[in-house]
Design a protein around this nucleic acid. Sequence first.
RNA 1: GGGUUGGUAGCUCAAUGGUAGAGCAGUACCCUUUUAAGGUAUUGGUUCUGGGUUCGAGUCCCAGCCAACCCA
Length: 485
Amino acid sequence: MDAPSHSELLAIRRQKLDALVAAGVDPFGRGFETDGPVADVRAKFAEGATLRLAGRITAHRDMGKSQFLDLSDATGRMQIFLHAKEIGDEAFHVFKQIDLGDFLGVEGEAFITKTGEPTVRVKRFEVLAKSLRPLPDKWHGVQDTEIKYRQRYLDLIANPESREVFQKRIAIVRAIRRFLEERGFIEVETPMMQAIAGGAAAAPFQTHHNALGMDLFLRIAPELYLKRLLVGGFPKIFELNRNFRNEGISRRHNPEFTMLEAYWAFADFEKMADLVEEMVCHLAETICGGLLLEHRDAEGNVTKTINLARPWRRARYADLVEAAVPSWAALSPDARRAKCAELHLDISHCVADYEVTQHVFEKLVEEKTMDPLYVTHCPKELVPLAKQNAADPSVVDVYELVINGQEISPGYSELNDPIVQRQRLEEQSGGETQKIDHDFLDALEYGMPPAGGIGIGIDRLVMMLTGAESIRDVLFFPHMKPRAD
RNA sequence: GGGUUGGUAGCUCAAUGGUAGAGCAGUACCCUUUUAAGGUAUUGGUUCUGGGUUCGAGUCCCAGCCAACCCA
């Protein structure tokens, strides 16, 4: 329910709407030919040229008979000038019904004002859409995080810095596709609704197919279907799309998130690491202005610096833990727990010994690592779908890429032994065989080529590359609880 | 799930327990090159919701809703 004064502001705009209709003007106009988005029109700007552009009115400077307005879209802003005597009384009366936020299409002559501002002198204009609600403050923009996230369109209209983050995200996603395609990878689509939610350990969202009378799950990962395509003979594939996990929401988690998975037959995890390193540097250099990324706070102070300079450091998991806590490897499981208490690390949720070590790794290595680090030779318990190392079967041939204190990308030498894979999945399912994707295991038995595989969480990658501190700042429409009425 | 902080005009923000205010936006008027235009006047409030304490609550207490941050 709107507060009374809000209704008053709305009522005034409705009155202007009625006045437009009374003057024979359609307040919600039709198609309008332009010379392109506002930025393109600005690029074509030449004094004396006739220009046509359309956009939303974002500023109005009323000088009486002279009117200056800013016409904007997501690409830019252009000043337009309008004079009562030049357009005539009838048109000026229509113009008087225009508010900030309305969409206008204009045609006019390009000129430069005496303050040097490129401007379009309006000869004709059309009302393209009346805005019936007032826009956010033009100077402060939208500060309220709830409005930013719930009404993203207002954030995009009012906050240029938000718009820039999303434009970078769009550019990053496009560049990833191009990068992989140029290297012979093809993009494929696999089911988002799966009878068994496999490929990761996470709680799925459940739904129901009426006609088939069966439950389905939204996928938590596309992995098992992409591997079927390796079996089917596609050697270089990727999928860049949404996954769904029915878990908590936080600064780093949204129930649906975007994941890139890529598989390369006859490659291994080290080759995949080279590929990811090259790709992320390519993104930083072409979209984010270079390999040195600076994250800033609201005041513009640098809070964090990430240096992507190659080659990226590679180190074994055990060596990293050992460097963080000397003699860790020599300690017994009980001594390790005692050591954690000494270091004020809460390991109450850890059951197995490898979980204690993993907690030490997360707190003392991962969270403190800003520059890229490939963590290799991880314990096999952490990664059930990867190949065991030939020399040391207690570890697997994988990397975990850490940047910005977060895991950005895992890469595996994929397990293609169907017998070992079956054992691993059976152990993981804890005896609940209905949770095992038997068709996937059958597929492996037909033969899957050895392959390198990667996953990259696109939202976290964009956070790292743009300096966003919350995943909500890189998602157009982050998940929110409904607001009570 | 636990803790901390916040929710006041359309937006951005003020307000020792004592008459709810400002800037912008809006409205009216002045102004023929302004650009956060300027000037004069002016409208606009269930202070998130529901209880309680008090002579008196935006402010203190309790419960709830929503959000941000931290922890798990």
